[in-house]
Design a protein around this nucleic acid. Structure first.
Lengths: 338, 338
DNA sequence: CTCGTTTATGTTATCGATAACACACCCTGT
DNA sequence: ACAGGGTGTGTTATCGATAACATAAACGAG
């Protein structure tokens, strides 16, 4: 925190190295044609006076910020964190830096956030989900940069898409339970329309149950997202109180599923003996818990990696029109459902 | 993705609203003295042509980016995510945006990252931990902005500090176990020196055990950070094989502690009957698991909130010299240790 | 009725890097 | 010997917003 008189600029470095500022500029982006000796002298001069490149000025002149904006519902969620990792790793090689914001599962917060992020003039923007306010959509439409919607397959995409159908994934789970002989199947999830992916999963549950000719009314509201382990446990308690003959339960995420499992353990309800439990997301807990939890793996890391690759393709002109990359979630059958 | 001819600027808005660009500029930052009518006309004109404020240009001229740089070891860790939440919420009110990077628990990666972040000219920088490469330290020293080290109490701080002593926290846990009557106590954690906080905890374990006159050699290496549930389970397996008479085990985090617990469940080792288990971090799993896990709550959210408050104090001139905010972690005694 | 003050707006120069263009020098081939 | 091309570096103008300064209009007090 030593306060030097003033932050040095390229001009200062140029003066010391005995070259023009333009040569300093070229020396700082490796690619250009500056002789080895000159570059070394420049970098040494820079290090000597503690010069740090100023991206702000560079961005204004070159009209390239090397930012990629990303919005996720919650920072504290392993699935989205994995998507972020995939993105970040894919973009790092090209020197693209992620500008992150989280929406708290609220599309109005998303609107504020998207505007704030666009002010930084990112090269591309990645949003989670396919449901947005009209103004968000307008902002994204006219931003003039690649837009990628993830974790969903929107009917009317804004631009590019890397995602999967949440409803269809849940259907696969129901088919699994039915094949195992279950008929009285419940769903634990948020009843509010806030978490759009959670809502899609619930609606997928209802549709698939009806398609099977089964009763789709065993819906337990676990509150507003993010739905915690604790809330999953509470919801399971209510389910066991009200509909004790339930044979299987699908939870909106592995976290609530694990919570539900612990509630069964506390009550002496055997899993998988008395009731089957399934989650969503293939979080680490699903693999490690005893019993291990049946779940759906949506390959969150791959979503991020594919989104990053897509961004690079578009920026390099290898991808012209809007692309849709469909991820195929995988049913992970473990002890909790057999 | 409609590609408009060119992104509109303030000058375009000014022309349409029939005012000077300066007035548009003032209208966009609420505080200034622009008449109600003029502001409305300007904002409407802006919305009409889809103008979005350009922070890049603003930052260059005003020398204020409204960025706060933050580095964390891993994005996929609930504790650091909570710190980030605390930070983000505290800074949002002032329009400060977080510029995030993660170091993967590697101080050389941290060095690259810090330089990259400083290029964006943040108003302040928050780093996790108190161990850095010499160049990182030099960069931070001469950056001319507030520097805050967190999650640690470094002996020789760079600037401000919001943290706690990892070693001391572990000592409290050992005192608890000893008071309960345990003597053969083990530690499960990374043996590599990569995760500096994990190393501090291990060293704290060794020092505190010796202070109690107990054998401090029951150290199980769980690999390189981040240490997962799975790795905690593996480590517990090795501990039970090699030192089956161990009475209590302290894990470097709740995640590995939970993994250790599941390994006991698989082997029919009773927790807390046969062995006591404790973790670190007070993750949600510690409260929900059966049995609930004894742990240490370092108040990660508060670390972020206090860091944010400190940044605002410094930027507003309310805080002159370097401050150290000591957080007092709390021992959370639950079923797994009684 | 004039002057001082407040309110609302305009003008000019500038933040720091770099795109676009220019050019001197050296090398190679015919 | 000279055209032609590559290599390394310099000059000038510019990205878009805003700090600093200037000023016109409105208003109240003496």
């Amino acid at each position: 925190m030593t306060q030097p008189r003033k932050t040095p600029t390229m001009a200062d470095v140029a003066r010391i190295a005995g070259v023009s500022p333009m040569t300093v500029s070229r020396a700082f982006k490796r690619d250009s044609s500056v002789s080895e000796a000159t570059r070394d002298a420049i970098l040494q001069a820079a290090e000597g006076i503690g010069y740090v490149f100023d991206s702000t000025a560079s961005s204004l002149r070159s009209q390239r910020t090397d930012f990629v904006a990303v919005t996720i519902p919650s920072i504290n969620n392993a699935n989205f964190a994995e998507t972020l990792r995939g993105l970040s790793e894919g973009l790092k090689a090209r020197g693209l830096q992620i500008l992150l914001g989280y929406t708290d599962y609220d599309i109005h917060e998303e609107e504020r956030l998207v505007e704030q992020l666009l002010r930084r003039r990112p090269e591309a923007i990645v949003v989670t989900g396919g449901k947005h306010t009209p103004r968000t959509r307008r902002l994204l439409d006219s931003a003039g940069i690649p837009v990628i919607e993830t974790w969903d397959l929107p009917a009317d995409p804004i631009g590019h898409v890397v995602g999967f159908s949440n409803a269809e994934a849940v259907r696969g789970m129901i088919d699994h339970f039915v094949a195992q002989g279950a008929q009285r199947i419940a769903f634990i999830g948020g009843d509010a329309d806030r978490d759009t992916r959670g809502t899609d999963r619930r609606e997928g549950f209802v549709a698939a149950m009806r398609a099977q000719g089964l009763d789709a009314s065993r819906l337990i509201d676990a509150g507003a997202p993010p739905i915690s382990m604790r809330e999953g446990a509470d919801a399971m308690g209510r389910l066991l109180d009200w509909l004790p003959d339930t044979q299987a339960v699908i939870c909106v995420s592995d976290l609530s599923a694990f919570g539900a499992l612990t509630e069964c353990q506390r009550r002496g309800v055997a899993v998988p003996g008395d009731i089957w439990i399934a989650g969503f997301g293939d979080y680490e807990i699903a693999e490690v818990s005893v019993p291990a939890l049946t779940t759906i793996n949506p390959f969150p890391r791959e979503i991020g990696a594919r989104a990053a690759a897509l961004i690079l393709d578009v920026l390099d002109g290898r991808q012209a029109g809007p692309a849709t990359v469909a991820i195929r979630p995988e049913l992970m059958i473990r002890q909790s459902s057999k």
